[in-house]
Design a protein around this nucleic acid. Structure first.
Lengths: 355, 355
DNA sequence: TATAACTGCACTATCGTTTGTGCAGCGGGA
DNA sequence: TCCCGCTGCACAAACGATAGTGCAGTTATA
């Protein structure tokens, strides 16, 4: 059952005593067009099937300049949010008989740049990119360039590339408003990486919600510097020590809120009794937490589906494409991590002072 | 900043008025070997750099029969466990200047078979496979075949292919023993797909632990039929209705325990007061659950690292490879989802009857 | 009967890269 | 002066698949 070196057109041609050309045409449905006899066509197809022939995609890609491959470049494949995106891209590509080459940029812009060149050298026909950096210089080559590229999750204002992202502004505004409606005024904001579109949009939403309720923004309540777990942990620890007296935390990512929860539980601060928490990103376990977490849910699956659709639209009709963005609505899922401060104000306000 | 059609050896050769051969040799470090002049070598390298030349990997792969690509075939890329494996493979491949083509078999053996053929047609130099099916017929071609293949997570007894998996037998035995030590005798077992190595090994561990404590196995307490969330949910619902009176659940996967928790919370059964739970697979949120979950942790990262190492060993020295398996130890992480029944027996035993 | 049209396939070039070999020109030793 | 060996590069083939074109042999048409 050893597999010999794989079947080629040449081998089939030799066994049948005909030319490689004819074999190729019989197998690519070009028999009629090139006047290959019915019987010859049959024999070729049968032998090909029995040999398990599958055309060498390197050769085919080289000749046709179509690799049937797209590239996927993601900051962290093991982050469930990105993994959800990748999955939909994998499924969408399979449907269209494409394969995906996946690169993990490890949140490094240098690796991102390098990986884009790598994908180019693989002759991918398109790329879905979840960018990590603050600069888009290395993406300019894709604006009206030779390889279609679609951004997901983040975009760059002013950069004419198609993208799909969550409506982070609206989502953050809604989450903040939710906290305000529950009587919170001192709301800590655990942000991600400054300068990235999700962060800036969420921050704008946060500020906007406060402003529209005539609550001044306390800049010292805005903390954190990246979307990782450490950032949430450290920022929360510092906030707790700084006597800033916040009653709620709005975390800008799943990992940030995870870090925040670790810090809170280490410091013996209870959710939502002492501090309320709202986070971006839903997760399967959140309903079962000690304090079932209220979240702004993004649909990674939908984002992946749309990204892959945009990309293939672009691949199939490069000229018809309108560069522009799609913003996906977010969903506020209210669970148990937000306490209504208005319910028993006298009893609670001094019960536990945070920080 | 538009990117023209990418630079080729030919273009460099023409611009420099020399032959393609010379350019190739100057760029692949073969200058000395083929007596290319120092000056020529310099000029080629400079121009190549300024053009951002990167060799076409399709052409190179075709010529060298080395695609610098490996295939990764996974049942569900968005499952955190598999995503963790994929990530390490991505990192390991990058280190070695390889790219990965990722396929998602969607838990379908048919898609798995199809994807293996697809990867073959991409001339991947190796494959990491997390298999889904019960049969290994389609894997026989890789035993001493032309493409190295490493199994991860699951293996097939008797199939001579290298693999890396968790020591599921020991892990399950330890988890079950832990429950027994805490006074549990009627332990429900929420299994995954029958016939797969993780399931059978875990089941053996479960039985072994019971046997070594002289506890007869109650077959009606063994339920579930796949590793998904639905299976855990349904099995738990049925067990609760069947008046089987179990005091603990041992779930064979993260998704199964997730389903179990959903069922338990719907039925108002509290963990660990009414039912104790131990699950396979650790997750970041588990410490923060209402009942912080006790788990048998597998290291997906380590599994991925070892898989990729085994694969590249195999690729580099095909003859030296010893087909055989590596079993990774699991870690029992005791948190709060197991109640010690011996602590207040009189008060608790009749307090809540499950099912 | 001569010619046209059609049938059925093969020849050849091509994609971009790598590799074995060939061929000039030059200097040095006999 | 003759030949050898060295330097520095070019030529051609090959990987496997595809596409334009050419060329026999057969049948239909005038």
């Amino acid at each position: 059952m050893k597999q010999k070196s794989p079947a080629t057109l040449k081998r089939i041609a030799e066994q049948l005593g005909i030319s490689v050309t004819t074999v190729s045409r019989a197998l690519t449905g070009q028999a009629r067009r090139y006047r290959i006899g019915r019987e010859t066509e049959q024999r070729v197809q049968e032998l090909a099937r029995s040999l398990g022939f599958s055309p060498n995609r390197l050769a085919r890609g080289l000749r046709l300049n179509r690799s049937s491959t797209i590239g996927v470049l993601i900051p962290d494949v093991s982050n469930p949010f990105f993994a959800g995106i990748v999955r939909q891209i994998a499924l969408g590509a399979r449907e269209r008989h494409y394969s995906i080459i996946v690169c993990d940029s490890q949140d490094s812009e240098d690796i991102e740049i390098e990986s884009l060149a790598l994908l180019r050298s693989h002759n991918v026909e398109g790329i879905v990119l979840c960018p990590v950096g603050l600069s888009a210089d290395h993406l300019l080559q894709f604006v009206e360039g030779d390889i279609p590229l679609v951004l997901a999750d983040r975009y760059f204002p002013g950069l004419r590339l198609p993208y799909v992202a969550s409506d982070n502004f609206a989502g953050a505004r809604e989450a903040t408003a939710h906290l305000i409606r529950n009587g919170h005024r001192r709301i800590a904001c655990l942000q991600g990486l400054r300068g990235t579109s999700p962060n800036e949009d969420r921050l704008r939403g946060y500020r906007e919600a406060l402003a529209s309720h005539q609550i001044p923004v306390n800049e010292s309540l805005i903390a954190g510097d990246c979307f990782g777990e450490q950032s949430g942990y450290v920022a929360t620890k510092l906030l707790l020590k700084s006597a800033s007296g916040f009653t709620a935390i709005f975390a800008f990512s799943n990992l940030i809120s995870l870090g925040a929860m670790r810090a809170l539980s280490e410091e013996g601060v209870r959710v939502p009794d002492d501090v309320s928490v709202v986070s971006f990103d839903d997760q399967p376990y959140l309903p079962h937490l000690a304090a079932p977490m209220t979240v702004v849910a993004q649909s990674a699956a939908e984002m992946g589906q749309i990204a892959v659709k945009l990309l293939f639209d672009h691949i199939q009709e490069p000229q018809r494409t309108v560069p522009g963005g799609i913003l996906l609505p977010t969903t506020l899922i209210s669970r148990g991590s937000v306490r209504n401060l208005d319910e028993s104000p006298s009893e609670r306000t001094q019960r536990h002072v945070c920080g």
